[in-house]
Design a protein around this nucleic acid. Structure first.
Length: 566
RNA sequence: GCGCUCGUAGCUCAACUGGAUAGAGUACUUGGCUUCGGACCAAGGGGUUACAGGUUCAAAUCCUGUCGGGCGCACCA
């Protein structure tokens, strides 16, 4: 189904016999609603673009076929600008949203393609901090965007429960009984134990041998250390599950590194035979220097497995067992070289499917880089609690009469939305310098602003028994400039989703929603809806109802928790 | 050293991927509730897009160089 704007563009292209046309939107509504830049056209015809625009405006202006779509067509410099007929626009936009509802904005670009998206690759035995939140918010949102573009997108997570960080944590846990004796939350405790261990090992490297012993004990899957590993691993996994559940994140599969080591070692043996991996300086590596990708160590000199062992096996399984067409990894930008290496290895083995690394820059603190080794981090629990507490106070202020449960529920939904929105509103290639002050501010470009606009809109709708489906609406009642701007904005939603999906860029959705709410707030202040004449009131209610639908759809793409009242 | 990346208003970020007068938020100044929810809205000041060249009808955007920040480059994950 063609969107309203796509239909208009197609009509214009047809009249002008254009195969590809470069449509854009004028910077302000005085200039027009839709624009065609005439530079390329003029070049082909060896004409002056401004003169060509005048010619085209004259010839199109008298075309009967375009009369019902455009109120006016005129040249503005080298641009051919179209003023869309408001009634056509309103009826087109509103009826397509009526039809599509929560599917409005979706497209079929990815139909038939299966993409697995791996994100939230948490490390067990380490703290969960704001950096992880950026990953999870981004991954979830990209998954939603790809689904909206028709892909069969499968969100998965790969938990690193088997690296040297685990051995370090267990080593410290065993030698210092204070951790086991503590009553603090186990998930938190493991993170603390790990950062302490890192510090000790840095100062006293002579303990390294003990850590290696533990690493080997875990790999052998026998003995006391292995039992402790099983127990502590379980705490971390349960903790991750609780985080996913409270943030509203769902994975189709969760893979664990420990489950891929055996298959990985077998694959490594095969790759040594085929010459893709070689022995070097006592270790096993992939030598990719001829591709300018350096060297990837896979097995340590002491014979223990490095991270790529499990990851190679998992990557292979995604193609062989899950038959995905494309494998996306959402991982911090620092792993860029590693993923180029991984993709190259699979290319060399002969896989046709695509491996794609979607990177994002990290979250730092004003004092400097976060690192769970040094303990210089803002952990998720701390952030969540601070935001929640403040939102409970703010909500209580406004709703004396609500029960504590209700206040808490609303404040919690807003907390989740705030955290995710803060992570998504900045484009992925920007470093986020995180500070509490900004995170606790609820005005301006924030999730609270969006949700507040939506709640206010819904409170109008609630007062009327009006249905988009049963009520007759005269669309020519909508004559305000602000109504036209709102209509054009929501008409552009489908192309926004398409673009954001192609670029894997949720920040564009965030920005769009913010602008839409700004338009609505402006409209709300300037125009009365419920006190308008009956016909006009119906038309305005129809308009704000579709605005609500678009906001709802956009919130879902970003993974925000929608609240009706706040 | 090699490679990647970023540099836009005091601060935090946009700019439809080469197009119209570089826009938002925040901070600052001022104004708006007997009207549908003030977690709101309106107005104002604030810019040599790090710098220097180049490409073209057109450059924040592309190319070259310089300066500055960040990151990665063999047993971390």
């Amino acid at each position: 189904m063609l969107s309203v704007l796509d239909n208009l563009k197609q009509q214009i292209s047809k009249e002008l016999k254009l195969k590809e046309a470069n449509f854009s939107y004028p910077p302000n509504s005085n200039l027009g609603d839709l624009s065609l830049a005439c530079f390329d056209l003029a070049k082909n015809q060896k004409k002056n673009p401004a003169e060509l625009a005048i010619e085209l405006a004259a010839s199109l202006g008298i075309k009967k076929s375009l009369k019902k779509y455009f109120r006016e067509i005129k040249a503005v410099g080298p641009y051919l600008n179209f003023f869309i007929n408001s009634e056509y626009l309103a009826s087109g936009v509103i009826s397509s949203i009526k039809r599509a509802k929560n599917r409005y904005g979706s497209n079929e670009i990815g139909r038939g393609r299966k993409i697995m998206i791996e994100y939230s690759n948490g490390n067990t035995h380490k703290a969960y901090h704001v950096g992880h939140l950026r990953n999870i918010a981004y991954g979830d949102s990209v998954t939603n965007l790809l689904s909206a573009s028709g892909y069969n997108s499968i969100p998965v997570s790969y938990i690193n429960d088997f690296g040297i960080h685990v051995a370090k944590t267990l080593w410290n846990w065993q030698r210092n009984k204070k951790y086991a004796a503590s009553t603090e939350d186990k998930g938190y405790l493991l993170g603390k134990c790990y950062s302490d261990a890192s510090q000790i090992l840095k100062d006293q490297p002579e303990y390294k041998e003990e850590v290696v012993k533990i690493m080997k004990a875990i790999e052998s899957r026998e003995g006391e250390s292995y039992t402790l590993w099983q127990e502590t691993r379980d705490w971390s996994i349960k903790y991750f599950d609780s985080i996913y559940s409270e943030l509203g994140i769902k994975f189709d599969h969760i893979f664990y590194e420990s489950e891929f080591i055996a298959a990985g070692l077998k694959l490594v043996a095969d790759l040594i035979k085929s010459g893709h991996l070689v022995k070097s300086e006592g270790a096993i590596i992939a030598n990719l220097e001829e591709y300018k990708l350096g060297v990837l160590p896979v097995i340590r000199t002491d014979g223990t497995a490095l991270y790529p062992v499990g990851d190679l096996a998992l990557a292979q399984e995604k193609f062989n067992k899950y038959h995905v067409d494309e494998s996306i990894y959402i991982v911090d930008i620092r792993q860029s070289l590693y993923f180029q290496q991984l993709a190259k290895i699979f290319e060399l083995i002969g896989y046709q499917q695509k491996i794609k690394h979607l990177s994002y820059d990290f979250v730092t603190l004003p004092e400097g880089m976060m690192s769970s080794r040094s303990g210089n981090i803002i952990i998720y629990e701390e952030l969540k609690t601070k935001i929640l507490e403040k939102l409970i106070i703010e909500t209580k202020k406004r709703h004396d009469d609500w029960t504590n449960d209700r206040i808490r529920q609303v404040a919690w939904n807003l907390t989740v939305s705030t955290i995710k929105f803060e992570m998504l509103k900045v484009s992925a290639d920007k470093i986020i310098t995180f500070n509490f002050e900004d995170a606790l501010r609820f005005d301006g470009y924030t999730a609270i602003y969006l949700q507040y606009g939506y709640a206010r809109l819904k409170s109008i709708v609630r007062r009327e028994t009006f249905s988009l489906f049963s009520s007759r609406v005269n669309f020519n009642e909508l004559r305000e400039i602000k109504e036209k701007e709102l209509l054009i904005k929501i008409a552009r939603y489908p192309e926004l989703i398409k673009l954001a999906g192609e670029k894997y860029n949720p920040s564009e959705v965030a920005k769009y929603l913010f602008e839409l709410v700004q338009l609505f707030n402006d409209y709300y202040h300037g125009v009365n809806i419920l006190k308008a004449e009956p016909k006009l009131r119906r038309a305005r209610l129809a308009l704000i109802k579709v605005v609500a639908q678009v906001l709802n759809n956009g919130f879902n793409i970003l993974g925000l928790k929608v609240v009706e009242e706040m």
